[in-house]
């Protein structure tokens, strides 16, 4: 019995996958359950990779901060679908820009709110984001999921770029939410 469902002559996918990751400049891909322990492990791996590549500390801190918010957003907001409970997290470096991508299922009914929130953030400039952050940090409350409603705003502020996203409906309950943020290594970009 082949318990993995794969035959040895199909193992070519390993090499294909490896080449795909390299061609897409991905340095880390994690697919599965997201918990605080997984978050810590992913953070520590990326931190080590960046230290090894000699990345400057300001960039390391920005990437680290944004990763924390992305990972904790998944922990708090990813919905389990009836066929799986996993989400995906990716980090890459293309030329002079780090990119962090996440993908997770959300309930259809939450899509519009999430879209509006990201549109609102993308329409604001640096000062506008700062004002919104200060307003929510001082007037907002921590949700029952433990979020402060500040994650996406913080990501946009730290990255200094627009949030990119798309939604693909899975079925009449769930939608897959794909998200990307780019973090330029140099300020001038």
């Amino acid at each position: 019995m082949d318990s993995t469902g794969l035959k040895s002559n199909e193992l070519g996918f390993v090499y294909e996958f490896h080449k795909k990751m390299i061609s897409m400049n991905l340095t880390l891909v994690y697919e599965g359950e997201f918990t605080q322990d997984i978050t810590k492990a992913v953070l520590s791996m990326t931190e080590k990779q960046m230290a090894y590549s000699g990345e400057q500390s300001t960039v390391k801190k920005k990437v680290f901060n944004i990763m924390v918010e992305c990972l904790q957003n998944i922990c708090k907001h990813s919905e389990n679908t009836y066929y799986n409970s996993s989400a995906i997290f990716m980090v890459g470096l293309e030329e002079d820009t780090y990119f962090i991508c996440t993908g997770n299922p959300v309930k259809n009914e939450n899509v519009e709110l999430l879209k509006m929130k990201m549109q609102e953030i993308n329409n604001l400039d640096k000062e506008g984001l700062k004002a919104l952050y200060k307003e929510i940090v001082s007037k907002g409350t921590i949700s029952d999921k433990g979020g402060a409603g500040l994650g996406l705003i913080d990501i946009a502020r730290k990255a200094g770029t627009k949030l990119e996203y798309s939604f693909e409906q899975i079925d009449n309950l769930m939608t897959f939410f794909s998200f990307m943020v780019k973090i330029p290594r140099s300020k001038e970009l």
Binding site: N65, E69, V137, S138, A148, L150, I153
Partner: peptide, 13 residues
């Protein structure tokens, strides 16, 4: 602090 997440930022306030 070296880093703090947004949930902590609310608690710091």
């Amino acid at each position: 602090l070296e880093y703090f997440n947004t949930a902590s930022s609310k608690l710091l306030l």
